[in-house]
């Protein structure tokens, strides 16, 4: 495999739930085993016994089949005191790992898929926002995103216009920053970490770092699981199964600027695991 995605870090287990017996799983089609080897230690091995590099970060165990050229991306907010760190738990989705990230970056579907929570008719317009590929960080960023939401977060009492920023620091990971209802001026952090099992199957590990001193942890988990499971049935029915990187039958609109930049960035790096290269 010449795909440079092999040198990227991927989430492969929830650290808090990993025991010594461990977990057999797949990473980009390769069987691997992940297990706890100590209170703060884990090991990941390939079927032939080769050990893989590991990191324990953001509640998850990360590994790579190749030789990562960069350290796992930083989320500075994760270390800020006072944030609740929420392990949402794994959900398997029969879709391309890139499709899972692309859906996470989309706002226009909120009123139709997350009705009365993240959006509602007739408030369907996505206003103009800024998108860029930040060369120094080598990340995709969307900023100044605004959307009217009936219940933006577990901690939101009524409808508010929510500010969003989206960030893609790795081909199958996205970090979303959104208005934090209890603490105006701060951003809640909601991530989507995607483990590519195959090009059309993935395990999705959502994770959050929130300012919310009120809500019960189970409520926070359930809110995010509810949102993600509303997406799952849509994701499993997207055609073509793989994310097209070349313009073809799809016609993007202004609301899809983040998706367009994400695809352009994937193509620039030749990140093609889960992508469709020839337009159909």
């Amino acid at each position: 495999m010449s795909d440079p995605m092999i040198d990227e870090w991927y989430p492969v287990a929830l650290f808090s739930k990993l025991d010594a017996a461990g977990r057999d799983t797949l990473l980009m089609g390769h069987p691997i085993h992940v297990a706890r080897t100590g209170s703060e230690r884990v090991a990941a091995t390939e079927a032939d016994g080769r050990s893989l590099p590991v990191r324990i970060r953001y509640g998850h165990v990360w590994t790579s089949l190749g030789e990562p050229k960069k350290e796992l991306f930083d989320i500075p907010e994760a270390d800020e005191p006072g944030r609740r760190l929420v392990d949402v738990g794994v959900v398997r989705v029969r879709c391309s790992p890139l499709r899972a990230v692309e859906n996470f970056l989309d706002i226009a579907h909120f009123p139709f898929v997350h009705t009365d929570i993240l959006g509602a008719e007739p408030h369907t317009e996505v206003e103009k926002y800024d998108v860029e590929i930040r060369e120094k960080e080598d990340e995709v960023w969307a900023t100044k995103v605004k959307f009217f939401q009936p219940q933006a977060a577990k901690s939101a009492a009524g409808g508010i216009t929510t500010d969003y920023m989206y960030r893609v620091p790795a081909p199958t990971c996205s970090v979303l920053y959104k208005t934090c209802p209890p603490r105006p001026g701060e951003w809640d952090v909601i991530t989507l970490f995607v483990q590519p099992l195959t090009e059309e199957l993935c395990d999705v590990w959502p994770w959050m770092a929130l300012y919310d001193d009120e809500a019960d942890m189970t409520d926070l988990i359930h809110f995010q699981q509810m949102i993600f499971l509303q997406d799952r049935s849509i994701l499993e029915n997207q055609i073509p199964r793989r994310l097209p990187l070349d313009p073809g039958m799809e016609i993007p609109t202004r609301a899809d600027m983040t998706s367009v930049a994400y695809r352009r960035w994937l193509k620039r790096h030749n990140y093609t695991y889960g992508a469709q290269l020839v337009a159909q």
Partner: peptide, 20 residues
């Protein structure tokens, strides 16, 4: 009422223009 994975029938809602 819906649950995640079971969506409501959007097409049966009043048209947005009429709602406003």
């Amino acid at each position: 009422i819906e649950m995640p994975g079971i969506h409501r029938l959007h097409e049966l809602k009043p048209e947005p223009a009429k709602e406003t």
